[in-house]
């Protein structure tokens, strides 16, 4: 098995890819997917540390993160459908009404 450092490397890289995705994409659905990728990177690191310290609390926490992510996706997609119905697009750069 690889050392814990390599898991930290992998999770950091995946998290950064998620952040880059949020910064460079304009499609609202792809943005939500990038957030999911970041959550998964954190989940992976939680599991790696739970294995490292042989403590199951970390894995239970991953389970709760998945629960919250599922709820978040349901509400987020409902909001996106609502945005699409009003603007006929899921382009988030159209949502700058608060700027004016």
């Amino acid at each position: 098995m690889p050392p814990i450092d390599h898991y930290i490397w992998l999770s950091s890289i995946l998290f950064s890819i998620g952040v880059i995705g949020v910064l460079i994409r304009r499609n609202g659905i792809v943005l939500l997917m990038c957030v999911e990728l970041m959550l998964n990177a954190v989940n992976l690191l939680f599991t790696a540390f739970a294995t490292n310290f042989q403590d199951s609390a970390g894995q239970v926490f991953v389970f709760f993160i998945m629960v919250v992510a599922a709820a978040e996706v349901a509400v987020g997609l409902a909001i996106l459908v609502m945005i699409y119905r009003n603007t006929k697009s899921v382009d988030i750069s159209l949502l700058d009404k608060l700027k004016q």
Binding site: M1, P3, S12, V19, I20, T51
Partner: peptide
């Protein structure tokens, strides 16, 4: 900006003297 975030995260890791021993095989999962 994302790459700088990655450098920041990994810079903190490189400076720490973390262990290089491999992950134990457990049955907590």
């Amino acid at each position: 900006s994302g790459g700088l975030l990655l450098v920041n995260l990994l810079g903190a890791l490189v400076k720490s003297n973390s262990s290089t021993e491999s992950l134990p095989i457990t049955d907590v999962g």
